[in-house]
């Protein structure tokens, strides 16, 4: 399909990704040929200066945006040029997103927020039929992130750490295969940050979940299997897997 030899263990890979933003007439290249291969069950951290394009890369990998040049392969299949409907489906089923600013829906309570991906996936009728099952799943995850006592609270009534944990529960409810986390601990104090990191590590181990995490914090980055650095629009390996 792409002429690249398929590597079975490669879960998600980027080939020669380029992305530029145009500011008026000026083209600002952000990514200039990013190459990366991530194996199934790997925990990769991406570090880099602010504005180096880490979030941009993550958005491209998670199909939130399309690259100008280059390809994104999932299990050896190109996914970045799929029709919108397929991309929506992949976002819903394959990728789980955790954002720096949590991004919960303010009108919904915690449980509903966690269940949003399932609501998006299923029609009203299907969802209604299986609502018991889904709600149990949601409660289970909320229990796992330690928020049982906040089940019916609105996001505005939660602390930053709690919101981030809710966002993690939301990302996991659709049983994704790849978790994309953009500075999940960026707005949290050290202790909450460590808790989130432990949670991610344990998920990575227990579910063989592929995790790609963007962070500023070198210490946190070390908890991942390996670290790559984004600089001048390209990825360099900073630390190989042990």
């Amino acid at each position: 399909m792409t002429g690249i030899i398929k590597m079975p263990q490669t879960h998600l890979s980027a080939i020669a990704l380029e992305k530029a933003y145009s500011k008026g007439k000026l083209q600002v290249p952000v990514l200039r040929g990013v190459e990366v291969q991530i194996k199934r069950g790997e925990f990769v951290s991406i570090v880099g200066q602010s504005g180096s394009g880490k979030s941009t890369l993550l958005h491209l990998l998670g199909l939130l945006d399309t690259p100008d040049v280059g390809e994104i392969l999932y299990d050896g299949q190109r996914i970045d040029d799929l029709p919108a409907q397929k991309r929506d489906q992949l976002r819903n089923r394959v990728f789980g997103f955790i954002f720096q600013f949590y991004h919960l829906l303010p009108e919904l309570n915690l449980l509903e927020n966690v269940l949003t991906p399932l609501m998006i996936r299923h029609s009203v009728w299907e969802y209604w039929k299986r609502r018991k099952e889904f709600q149990d799943l949601g409660r289970d995850l909320i229990h796992k992130v330690g928020l049982d006592h906040r089940l019916t609270h609105k996001p505005s009534e939660l602390s930053g750490g709690e919101m981030q944990r809710a966002a993690i529960a939301r990302a996991l409810v659709a049983t994704p295969e790849v978790l994309l986390a953009d500075e999940p601990t960026g707005n949290l104090d050290n202790k909450s940050g460590r808790e989130i990191m432990d949670l991610l590590s344990s998920l990575n181990e227990s579910r063989q979940l592929t995790i790609i995490m963007v962070t500023h914090d070198e210490a946190l980055a070390r908890q991942a299997h390996r670290t790559v650095r984004l600089a001048e629009g390209q990825l360099q390996v900073q630390r190989e897997a042990a």
Partner: peptide, 16 residues
């Protein structure tokens, strides 16, 4: 706007 972005990131289609 932000909520629309979230919904799309979670897989909601434009039609939805």
């Amino acid at each position: 706007t932000r909520d629309i972005g979230i919904l799309k990131a979670l897989g909601a289609s434009s039609g939805g």
